[in-house]
Amino acid sequence: MTWVSLFSGGKDSAWALYRAQQEGLDVGRLLTVHPTGDSYMYHTPATHLAGLAAESIGIPLVEVEPDSFGAHDVVDAGAQGDAELEPLEAELRRLAEEPGFDLTGVTAGAVESEYQTSRIEGLCDRLGIDLFAPLWQRDPGTLAEEMLDAGFEITIVQVAAAGLDESWLGRTLDADALAELRRLNEEYGVHVLGEGGEFETFVVDGPHMARRIELELATEWEGTRGHVVVEDARLE
């Protein structure tokens, strides 16, 4: 009975993996989808670092790099989400056919996105597998506190929301940052976990990792949003 963890290297997917391991689920693969541009379904920044994370975690990584998700002519958001799911489903079907690989289910880090979760649930129904989504419908502030209490070291790699300026790029999501995010939630509606794309993260260390990932970063700021540029990344 083998599980696949849908994994971007960000805090939510890493937390879903960690909680699955705590529950005793046999996670045999990490699976990262590398979007070629903006995506409705997937975390996009810094996914090229997933390989380093997988090496530290000690679980083999499967990477999916579709050219355009088959969605280049799609203008409807729902249809695009369906199209973006196709390469993920194809890869899971391939894994399920591997000799000795008994695909039982997938883990996912969705918190409040019905758009994403409903599609992953549909995928699981079609494949006849289970879904483990330990963040789903949980209080965002409580989840963030649990991540920090567990020892997750979380780096902010992209921001795109009122109240989040260039100083947030490369910042560690710690107790002080969480307190500021709660204030920004009250003032601007910024989601405390960035579920609406307000910010994106990468986990550089945690209890599920054997070695910390050291990052050397620059930043690119575009007036109202920005992202980090990874100049170097290595396992300590």
Results as ranks from 00 to 15, higher is better:
E97W: 02
E222W: 08
G28M: 03
Y115F: 15
A77P: 02
A71L: 01
Q22V: 02
S13C: 12
H72T: 14
A53P: 00
A175C: 02
G197Y: 10
A54V: 03
D73T: 07
G81T: 01
T32H: 02
R171F: 03
V204T: 15
D139I: 13
Y115G: 11
V62W: 03
E180C: 01
V190D: 04
S5T: 02
D130I: 00
R29L: 14
A90C: 05
Q21P: 00
L193Y: 09
T47R: 14
G151Q: 10
V228M: 03
E63M: 03
G70C: 13
D82A: 15
H43W: 05
E63G: 03
L181W: 07
L148S: 09
E231R: 13
G163N: 05
C124Y: 04
R119Q: 05
P60L: 12
P134S: 03
T2S: 14
V4G: 03
T36F: 07
F202N: 06
R94P: 05
V33F: 12
G105R: 06
A144V: 13
E121Q: 12
Y115W: 10
Q137V: 00
D165E: 14
T201S: 13
R171S: 15
D73V: 00
T172S: 14
G70R: 11
L127P: 07
G197N: 06
E114Y: 09
G226I: 10
D139V: 13
A79K: 15
S13Q: 09
A14Y: 12
E146H: 11
M41K: 06
E198R: 10
P35E: 09
H34W: 12
V4Y: 01
D67A: 14
R126T: 10
W15P: 04
G223P: 01
E63D: 10
H191R: 12
R171P: 05
S56K: 07
Y40H: 15
T32N: 08
L88P: 07
D38A: 15
S118L: 09
R119E: 11
D139C: 13
A161Q: 10
D130C: 00
R211W: 04
F69Y: 13
R183N: 14
G78M: 06
A50M: 06
A110Y: 08
V230W: 01
Q21G: 01
Y188H: 15
A161V: 07
A53V: 00
P207D: 11
A96D: 04
D165S: 15
L164E: 12
L85D: 10
G196Y: 09
S56H: 13
G206D: 10
H72W: 13
A20D: 05
F69G: 10
R171G: 08
T155W: 01
G122Q: 01
R126D: 15
L88S: 11
G122R: 08
S68R: 05
L217H: 07
L184W: 03
E200D: 12
D12N: 06
V159F: 12
G163H: 02
L92H: 04
I213D: 07
L103S: 03
D102N: 14
E216L: 02
R29K: 15
Y18D: 00
L95D: 08
R93Y: 09
V157N: 00
P60T: 12
